[in-house]
């Protein structure tokens, strides 16, 4: 019973990681940049979720507002941070991104206070028994539904629409795509919007599960999401999804069985280093 329970908890955690990591993978695929500031967008999503839910009483409205706002802020982050640095070595953009992330944590603290916010009346508290003896809250089920829905929607978009095909072409060869009439800038803005909106959704869901948003809530996911996209083979969307779920499950088991030697975060990185030593190009790398 414990095994199944751990698997389920791990997969739910993995679904959250997947929502965060997707944006990072998209950005990496397009720009070859490790987008650390992505985690600030995740935190922003959490804050918008709490503020709007407490203000309007509608969680659905909060979720949609958060995705929209965070999506636009994500597009702005491309314009302000990365666009001017595209011609520089990737390390420069990485440090700039870390700088923005550190500054944004402090900004959240100044605007929303150091102690965090929580829902005055947390929605989706009901429990459902999904298997005999194992019940999950509605919020956890929504996490899974949301992740599956958003990610498969994305997948459909990538395969069946013109913009999706153009986006994939841009990832493979930006210069060729541009010469075939793809507007590379539009693709980049669109990718930042989608990736950031997903991170915003993840932020809202995490704030609901913990019933708390803090300025520092983005820190751990940001490092872990980096580990995930590296693990998946940088830029590979499918690899990132597999790695997210795998990491969620491994952490769930790891904290129970090796928790006395390693803390939760280092389990993720021990796993990462082990895999990279065997497969330096990541789990599912292209070519």
């Amino acid at each position: 019973m414990l095994l199944i329970d751990l698997c389920i908890q791990g997969l739910i955690q993995g679904a959250i990681y997947a929502l965060i990591a997707l944006g990072l993978t998209l950005v990496y695929g397009l720009l070859r940049i490790l987008h650390v500031a992505h985690a600030a967008l995740f935190t922003l999503g959490g804050y918008v979720g709490v503020v709007v839910t407490n203000g309007s009483g509608s969680f659905l409205l909060a979720l949609l507002t958060a995705m929209l706002i965070v999506g636009f802020v994500g597009m702005a982050s491309y314009r302000v941070i990365y666009k001017p640095l595209l011609m520089r070595p990737p390390l420069i953009a990485l440090i700039a991104s870390i700088g923005v992330f550190i500054a944004s944590e402090e900004l959240f603290r100044l605007v929303f206070g150091a102690y965090g916010l929580s829902y005055t009346n947390p929605p989706l508290k009901g429990q459902v028994e999904i298997l005999p003896g194992i019940s999950l809250s509605h919020a956890r089920i929504l996490v899974v539904v949301l992740a599956v829905g958003l990610l498969s929607g994305m997948g459909w978009l990538a395969v069946h629409t013109r913009i999706g095909i153009a986006a994939r072409a841009t990832v493979v060869d930006p210069a060729m795509a541009a010469s075939s009439g793809v507007n590379v800038e539009t693709i980049r803005y669109a990718s930042f919007f989608i990736g950031s909106a997903f991170a915003g959704a993840a932020g809202v869901m995490v704030s609901l599960l913990n019933n708390l948003v803090e300025p520092t809530m983005g820190a751990v996911p940001s490092y872990k999401a980096l580990a995930i996209i590296v693990l998946g083979g940088l830029g590979s969307v499918r690899g990132a999804l597999v790695a997210s779920l795998a990491l969620g499950v491994i952490e769930a088991f790891g904290t129970i069985y090796v928790g006395h030697i390693l803390d939760r975060d280092s389990i993720a990185f021990a796993f990462l280093i082990m895999i990279l030593m065997v497969r330096p190009q990541g789990l599912l790398a292209r070519g």
Binding site: R32, L94, V230, L262, D263, S266, A270
Partner: peptide, 23 residues
């Protein structure tokens, strides 16, 4: 491992170090 992979591996080293020390 090279480039970005190395960057993340070394980042893993620092988390591993603090994780081990904590316990």
């Amino acid at each position: 491992v090279r480039h970005d992979f190395l960057a993340i591996t070394t980042m893993g080293v620092v988390f591993l170090f603090t994780g081990i020390v904590r316990k």
